[in-house]
Simulated assay, not measured.
Amino acid sequence: MAGKIYIIGIGPGDEKNRTLRMLEAIKESDVIIAYTTYADLIKDLTDGKEVITARMKEELYRAKMAIKKALEGHTVALVSSGDPQVYGMAPPTLEMMCANNVNVDFEIIPGVTAALAAAARLGSPLSMDFAVISLSDLLVPAEEILHRVRKAAEGDFVIALYNPINKPLLLKAMEIIAEYRKGETPVGIVKGAYRENEEVIVTTLSEWKKYLDKINMVTMMIIGNSRSYICNGKIITPRGYTSRYDYVNAFNS
Score class of each variant (00 low, 15 high):
6 Y>P: 12
11 G>I: 03
12 P>M: 05
14 D>A: 01
15 E>R: 15
16 K>D: 08
18 R>G: 10
20 L>H: 03
28 E>G: 14
31 V>H: 08
36 T>E: 15
38 Y>T: 09
45 L>R: 13
45 L>V: 12
51 V>Q: 11
54 A>Y: 08
54 A>S: 11
57 K>G: 07
58 E>S: 11
60 L>A: 12
67 I>N: 00
67 I>P: 01
74 H>W: 04
74 H>E: 06
80 S>K: 08
80 S>I: 06
82 G>W: 02
85 Q>V: 03
90 A>I: 04
90 A>Q: 05
92 P>I: 09
96 M>L: 14
97 M>D: 02
100 N>T: 12
101 N>D: 15
104 V>F: 06
106 F>D: 02
107 E>K: 12
109 I>V: 14
110 P>A: 07
112 V>S: 03
112 V>H: 01
120 A>L: 12
132 V>D: 08
141 P>Q: 04
145 I>D: 01
148 R>Y: 07
149 V>K: 00
150 R>M: 11
158 V>W: 04
159 I>Y: 07
168 P>T: 02
170 L>V: 02
171 L>M: 05
177 I>A: 09
179 E>N: 07
180 Y>G: 09
192 G>C: 00
193 A>R: 08
195 R>C: 02
197 N>Q: 12
198 E>A: 00
200 V>R: 09
202 V>H: 09
206 S>C: 03
215 I>L: 09
217 M>V: 00
222 I>P: 08
226 S>F: 15
230 I>Y: 01
233 G>L: 07
235 I>Y: 07
235 I>C: 14
237 T>Q: 07
243 S>E: 15
247 Y>L: 13
248 V>F: 13
250 A>S: 06
